[in-house]
Design a protein around this nucleic acid. Structure first.
Lengths: 400, 400
DNA sequence: GTGTCGGCCGTCTGCCGACAA
DNA sequence: TTGTCGGCAGACGGCCGACAC
């Protein structure tokens, strides 16, 4: 059971309930979501993967899907949809970020007329420029003291102190995702000198139930506002099943909702929870098309893929493609969801997923893209349920 | 996001996840659920109402159902099911009690052979005998002091003190729903003398996040164990929507799961949350049949109905039946769910539901039940989709 | 440059009976 | 009979520089 604050990327969004009128700061939302999370543009076309959605529900309910749920043979493993609305949210209790999207499957006629626009590739997540993120130590979260601010971070992100004062100090006011303000005393003292947040810090720590290992993010934005977000450590045990509906019914519900929307070309609503599971199941159409039609992949090929580091930055891991096949040949034949089986170079990468999707990898050997964009690289025929994008011209793909 | 402890009414239940192996105390569960909540017997036959289930999901997600969800014309408004399993649970964060049930719709053949057993009427909730329930005052929950135990309650429920000591005192150990033990110092002191819980009480209050207005329940059971439960005040604002699945998808999910199970005679799982909404949507078959076939109701008839009081006991409110009609003639024609429209005698009863179901009311004018159990009292023909219980004999209904 | 600690002081917790409703 | 309060003693919160890594 949750309440949340929400915000539309296009400003305000009043279709939420009474308690959800507040506007979330997009910059702070993205900082909390992490550098790898990007959201599609409102109005653009996207590809929705019921399989990936299912994975997220599995991760959120902490329960595998039962084998007895019905098949939806009419439901394609990938639905091309128009993204009508997108609102950013944060759980009021945990501040966990998520996005609500309203999708409408394209009619068969619309699918024939697809002409890709470069803007629909999806822009990479724009992380704020003037910010810092610190993983909290035992001292930071203990009741015995305050928060030790890394020197460079304080000098870059906080307003300058008057160092002629002894000791130099000021009051900081920071806004969290829900718009609540938090006051902190910022002081520069000690031997050697260091930046500390003292009065007000412990109130914040206990209110948000922050523990050592969690991270805080401070942003100084263009409007000279200080923003404050938190990112919890990966305590996977905190994922709890809902007592509202059985996980089986939830899986059936997401499939039936998508199938009904596809059959009637009507809208449906989904939640995307970027930190619950590594399954980005709504992909900009152009990104998908580029990967599926313009990327040559084959067994044995070397590739790179982006991952988020502990310090909230990104690094590339390398691996080799070992096979290309259906993840679930019975339920989801001819699906591109995690159709690429891979091996990772580093032994420490043992927990990385053994299967990825085409649009997640960057092949290391760059072939010339033109003039043969339609040369086949897949080991199997194109699924009959999918359009061939007859309106897709090469010129439309000249991006990035 | 929730974890929960669970318990089968038949002892242990190992079909839950790893973290849910603990056994809930049934007596304590029922005390927390309240005197009106009764659970059907495992193995018995019940009637499941998708409409009522939908009401509970609406209450839990705090969102009305969207009009765009598909119809399930094949889904009957009442499904006769076998109850294969029932486990009692409690939310690990809020201690909110709920039950998980595994239901299997009867095949058409089984429905023809129905012969009611008296035991299937469902036993009334057996509240513990040796217990007390107190709504906490500001002093009880403040950090300034302990818990003032009402004198009769302490003398009835707690082990006797040695009054020759000065002051008389002992250590109490109480187990909550999850099996956690809480230690309290029980002392009899002051002028005038009174029973108090001092050391240990504030730890419990802050751990459970108890506030003034919430209630605590102490039970002394047959095994000489002290049990301790909490019942939160009706702070309806605490009901929060899930961020796992949209409420539309949840509604579709519960309908599709029931429809699939009915079509294939397979099992499905539901959660019944007695304090989330006043909709008991799984009813013992015999109770349902008795109400529908053996109770004469008509417009203008006076009746009584049980309600829970603030003090966790029951009282009867009186009213008059104003009409008998479908709650939702479009989606759920010929449903017995809340088919009786009523007016309440007391003006303070303004918030009571204007619609109830047949099995919830006791008609005040008692007609002779025999020899005409099948004389029709409903204003409309019996829905064709429902069986007539050909095996039902009068002798089987000789109860209560 | 920063994590943890001992020292120190002020506030709050928490046990007591007084008192009144 | 029991809810709230003033009084009081001790625990803990929280600000400080020392010190070490």
């Amino acid at each position: 059971m949750k309440l949340s604050s929400s915000s539309s990327t296009s400003g305000f969004d009043m279709q939420q309930g009474e308690e959800e009128k507040k506007c979330l700061n997009s910059e702070l939302w993205h900082a909390c979501a992490g550098p790898l999370v990007s959201l599609p543009q409102i109005g653009s076309r996207v590809v929705y993967f019921p399989q990936g959605h299912s994975e997220q529900v599995t991760a959120s309910t902490n329960k595998e899907v039962d084998a007895t749920i019905p098949n939806y043979p009419g439901l394609s493993p990938q639905l091309i949809c128009q993204l009508h609305n997108l609102t950013m949210h944060a759980d009021l209790e945990t501040e966990e970020v998520y996005a609500q999207m309203t999708l409408q499957p394209l009619s068969p006629q619309d699918q024939k007329d697809i002409c890709l626009l470069p803007a629909e590739l999806g822009s990479p997540s724009k992380q704020p420029t003037n910010y810092f993120c610190k993983t909290l130590t035992a001292s930071d979260t203990s009741t015995h003291g305050g928060f030790s601010v890394p020197r460079r971070a304080a000098e870059k992100v906080f307003p300058p102190l008057d160092y002629s004062l002894t000791p130099p100090a000021q009051e900081l006011i920071a806004k969290d995702l829900h718009g609540n303000e938090w006051k902190f005393r910022h002081i520069f003292r000690g031997q050697p000198k260091r930046h500390l947040l003292t009065t007000g810090w412990s109130v914040f720590v206990s209110a948000k139930r922050i523990v050592a290992g969690d991270s805080v993010i401070f942003i100084w934005n263009e409007n000279n506002q200080l923003l404050l977000g938190i990112r919890r450590a990966n305590r996977s045990q905190t994922v709890m099943p809902s007592s509202v509906l059985s996980s089986d019914s939830m899986h059936i519900g997401l499939l039936a909702a998508a199938a009904h929307a596809a059959a009637t070309n009507s809208r449906f609503t989904i939640f995307y929870n970027p930190r619950a599971s590594p399954s980005e199941f709504v992909i900009p159409l152009a990104k998908y098309a580029k990967a599926v039609y313009h990327t040559r992949v084959s067994v044995g090929m070397r590739f790179r893929m982006l991952f988020e580091t502990e310090e909230s930055s990104v690094r590339r891991y390398m691996g080799t493609i070992t096979s290309i096949s259906d993840l679930d040949p019975v339920r989801w034949p001819n699906s591109h969801w995690r159709s690429v089986k891979v091996g990772w170079d580093e032994s420490t990468a043992g927990e990385k997923q053994p299967r990825v999707s085409l649009w997640e990898v960057e092949p290391l050997t760059t072939f010339p893209m033109y003039p043969s964009p339609f040369s086949l690289r897949l080991k199997r025929p194109w699924p009959s349920g999918l359009p061939f994008f007859p309106g897709l011209r090469d010129g439309d793909m000249s991006m990035n």
